[in-house]
């Protein structure tokens, strides 16, 4: 059981961003992808989610054997168990957090079945409390006027409520101060389970002190070029990415 990416290639317009990417996240593990800006990390997250701007030109992504690309619509993929916490979460004017998450949960129920409102709010408040999100936020429009930290906490709240099988966290640490980073990381760690896999995309090693990965991958120019344990992240932090590129050139 795993999130398996095989030989994935994808374009935006005429430009190829992903160039035959391979990666497998077994259920129960946390994998991190590190890489320079422009290496294609965020593209990977969006391609998996089904963003309409990207064209998949080859390869496959499977969730526990389920072919993601046979599902056209992003919402089908989400309901199949994929969650993406975005680097820049969208503001949705007029739609409150409570209604938004409720609609997302409702969409997962069989037709004709209604979400129990009382249970829902109890559950929502519990998760909000643990993420230190003021309960007043339930009636605020999704991400509208939120600070960077509030947006990221709201992403983690949605993840906690939607209970995905595989979660991709795209630069969830960006824009967070140290306290917010701890809260968000605690939220993610609380969700670590043998029934769930995480792919944590990050630019900095810092996040990985809080969310300790089982495997660290390095992404360069649309491919995973190196994998290792958490110490690889420390090495990247200390020495930068140049040595990785040199090493690839040497072995190429």
């Amino acid at each position: 059981m795993s999130l398996k990416i095989e030989n994935l290639s994808a374009n935006i317009g005429d430009r190829q961003i992903l160039k035959g990417l391979n990666l497998e996240v077994p259920k129960g593990q946390v994998h991190a992808i590190m890489g320079k800006n422009g290496s294609g990390k965020s593209t990977l997250a969006k391609v998996m989610a089904g963003h309409p701007d990207y064209e998949v030109t080859g390869g496959s992504v499977t969730l526990d054997g389920l072919n993601l690309f046979e599902m056209q619509e992003p919402d089908q993929r989400a309901r199949a168990g994929l969650f993406v916490a975005f680097q820049y979460p969208m503001e949705i004017p007029g739609v409150t957090i409570a209604n938004f998450i409720r609609a997302a949960l409702q969409a997962r129920l069989p037709e004709g079945e209604e979400l129990d409102a009382v249970e829902y709010y109890e559950h929502l408040y519990k998760k909000m409390d643990s993420l230190k999100i003021d309960r007043k936020f339930t009636s605020r429009a999704v991400n509208e006027g939120f600070s960077g930290g509030e947006k990221k906490r709201c992403e983690v709240l949605q993840m906690a409520m939607l209970n995905p099988v595989y979660a991709v966290l795209d630069e969830t640490d960006s824009g967070l101060d140290i306290d917010a980073l701890r809260i968000v990381s605690d939220g993610v760690n609380a969700m670590r389970s043998p029934e769930r896999g995480f792919l944590v995309i990050t630019h900095y090693q810092r996040l990985l002190d809080y969310i300790v990965p089982d495997v660290v991958h390095v992404m360069v120019d649309g491919r995973i070029v190196m994998s290792g344990d958490k110490n690889l992240a420390h090495k990247l932090e200390a020495q930068g990415y140049d040595w990785v590129e040199k090493e690839i050139l040497a072995t190429a």
Binding site: A78, I92, A103, A104, A141
Partner: peptide
């Protein structure tokens, strides 16, 4: 409400039509 916002809502499992309804009703 841009295509990007609809995509965001769809990533949460909400269908395109339901996402637009949600935005309009809100």
């Amino acid at each position: 409400i841009s295509a990007e916002q609809i995509f965001y809502m769809q990533q949460r499992g909400i269908s395109e039509g339901a996402a637009m309804s949600l935005a309009v009703n809100g």
